[in-house]
């Protein structure tokens, strides 16, 4: 099976976010970045399917030059090659525009299966995979917790709300959005890291793909949310905070 995995580079989870001067995005200078968490699970799932059924795993990423770090990590973990849609100003594209870039590059590969994460940690649209599927005319299923190859295609386990699940049979090619926790992530081996350097990374631009930014949705302003809740913050050293909290639990909330 030829599997394409969409991976996105996002600011590290522990980053202290600061707004940039335009007020439309965060200041990304000096921010550490990492692979979007569910995308790491999507990549792992692709690698496991390949190990079972053979084929090829191709990582697909749209992002600035520094995203090559995340791509290299995917190659070190076992992706066979990668496609980097290099663009320093992806913010000019809306969700549909980015999905068009990804879908166009994907179409050139005619994969059997496309995996994406279910949601990005930065923009959090939770949509890109589904939009790609529609652009490519493929069936899709979201929030996937298990993938099995069948004679007719694949059988997936979809997460529903409140602890429910559901199986679905889907013909290939198809798009799946993968939920965190579907598998156990591997680490890159030293050998893998060495081999990654020799693997092919195909670079494409929006011009190569022939897709302009014509957003019909724009992000006008980014800001800190206003607190609605009156939280009582407990000041002091850790010991003082702990003592005060124990007192509150005992005498105000009365649970001790």
């Amino acid at each position: 099976m030829k599997i394409l995995v969409a991976i996105k580079q996002v600011p590290s989870r522990d980053s202290q976010l600061r707004l940039d001067t335009s007020g439309r995005w965060i200041d990304e200078a000096d921010l550490a970045s990492e692979i979007n968490e569910p995308d790491a699970y999507a990549l792992e799932e692709a690698l496991q399917i390949k190990e079972k059924h053979g084929g090829e795993v191709v990582a697909l990423c749209a992002g600035p030059a520094r995203a090559s770090q995340t791509i290299r990590e995917a190659l070190a973990k076992g992706a066979d090659r990668a496609i980097h849609i290099e663009n320093d100003d992806l913010g000019r594209y809306d969700l549909l525009g980015v999905a068009r870039l990804l879908a166009k590059a994907a179409a050139g590969e005619t994969p059997d299966l496309i995996l994406t994460g279910l949601q990005s940690d930065d923009l959090g649209y939770g949509q890109t995979g589904v939009v790609m599927a529609e652009l490519l005319g493929l069936p899709a299923a979201t929030i996937i917790m298990q993938v099995e190859k069948t004679d007719a295609g694949i059988r997936v386990k979809r997460e529903l709300e409140d602890g429910w699940f559901q199986h679905m049979d889907i013909p290939l090619p198809a798009v799946l959005t993968i939920q965190s926790g579907i598998n156990k992530l591997r680490y890159a081996t030293l050998m893998g890291i060495k081999k990654a350097k020799t693997k092919e990374v195909k670079r494409l631009t929006s011009v190569d793909l022939g897709i302009d930014a014509v957003p019909n949705v724009s992000l006008d302003r980014v800001y800190l949310p206003q607190r609605a809740k009156q939280t009582t913050f407990i000041p002091g050293s850790a010991r003082e905070q702990a003592a005060k909290l124990a007192e509150i639990l005992k005498f105000e909330v009365r649970v001790l």
Binding site: P11, L17, D122, N216, V217, L224
Partner: peptide, 18 residues
């Protein structure tokens, strides 16, 4: 103007549908 959260609720953003 539609307000939605970014970065898992750490920031808010105004989106405009034109």
């Amino acid at each position: 103007v539609m307000v939605r959260q970014l970065f898992q609720g750490k920031l808010n953003a105004d989106y405009r549908a034109s």
